[in-house]
Computed example of a mutant assay.
Amino acid sequence: MKKLLATAALTMLTTAPMFASANQHHTHHHYHHGGPNAYQGPRVGLGISYLSDQYIDTDTGFKLEGGFDFNRIVGFNLSYEESGFDYYRGSVDYSTVKLGTDLGYAFPLSPSVSLKPYVSLGFHRTTEDDNWCSSKYCYSTNYSDTNTYYGIGMRLTADMFYINVSNEVMKLDVGPYRYEPNQIAVTVGLKL
């Protein structure tokens, strides 16, 4: 999965100049005219997500996100993410709702392409569902925690489309355990 994240980041960095040169004279869309609203407005996207640290390495799940960019620097984000993993006679599933902001700077690469590296911070509500079976019985437990998160990311916007890559660290207290897993995601979406 780390190879997938590296590939997505590399793709963003290598395709940004191509988008910039291909769209150098293409400015008909309402989003990028270079006017006061060029870096404002809502966005919505869908992608993949997973959790990873020294104790957890989930399978690839999904992410649904929405947001609003106020200007080149500040953005608002709301997302829902699910991932989990199976093991012998059991499974663990995570679901997370995040509400936060991203702070960075959207560098214009052309009239219709921008690249925004950013830091993110906010709050999350994460639920962990554990299910396992012995030779005779099956059991389940459920833990939830509301806490903070922080991270980094990069968003490439080309005309009305965007690609977002993020790595966010969540503070998580579930049951007797306290840890800080990385929630890594790659999303593709529309700038509305």
Rank of each mutant, 00 (worst) to 15 (best):
V44N: 01
V44C: 08
G45E: 02
G45R: 00
G45W: 00
I48H: 07
I48K: 06
S49Q: 10
S49Y: 06
Y50P: 02
Y50T: 04
L51D: 01
L51M: 08
D53K: 13
Y55G: 12
Y55L: 14
D57C: 02
T58H: 07
D59R: 04
D59K: 01
D59V: 00
G61D: 02
F62G: 03
L64Y: 02
E65L: 05
G66P: 03
G66I: 03
F68S: 07
D69N: 11
F70W: 15
F70Q: 08
R72S: 08
R72M: 04
R72G: 05
G75S: 10
F76C: 01
N77M: 13
N77R: 15
L78I: 14
S79F: 01
Y80H: 09
Y80W: 12
E81I: 02
E81L: 01
E82A: 10
E82V: 09
S83G: 05
G84S: 03
G84E: 03
F85I: 08
F85P: 04
D86A: 03
Y87R: 00
R89L: 14
G90W: 05
S91Q: 04
V92R: 12
V92E: 12
S95D: 08
T96M: 00
K98H: 11
K98G: 09
L99H: 11
L99I: 15
D102S: 14
D102K: 15
L103A: 13
A106I: 04
F107N: 10
P108S: 11
L109M: 15
L109E: 06
L109N: 08
S110T: 10
S110H: 06
S110D: 05
P111M: 08
S112G: 04
S112C: 08
S114E: 11
S114C: 08
S114Y: 05
S114D: 12
S114Q: 11
L115C: 10
K116N: 02
P117I: 02
P117E: 01
Y118K: 09
Y118F: 14
V119H: 08
S120K: 11
F123M: 15
F123G: 12
H124V: 13
R125G: 11
T127A: 06
D129L: 06
N131P: 06
S135A: 15
S135P: 10
S135Y: 14
Y137W: 07
C138P: 08
S140M: 01
S140T: 07
N142S: 11
Y143H: 14
S144L: 09
D145E: 06
D145F: 08
D145Q: 05
T146M: 13
T146I: 13
T146G: 12
N147I: 06
T148V: 15
Y149Q: 05
Y149R: 03
Y150C: 02
G151I: 04
G151W: 06
I152S: 03
G153H: 02
G153A: 06
M154G: 12
M154T: 12
T157W: 03
A158R: 12
D159R: 10
M160V: 13
Y162N: 09
I163D: 09
N164Q: 00
N164V: 05
V165Q: 10
V165C: 13
S166K: 09
S166W: 01
S166R: 09
K171M: 11
L172H: 10
D173V: 04
D173M: 07
V174Y: 07
Y177T: 14
R178D: 09
R178F: 10
E180S: 15
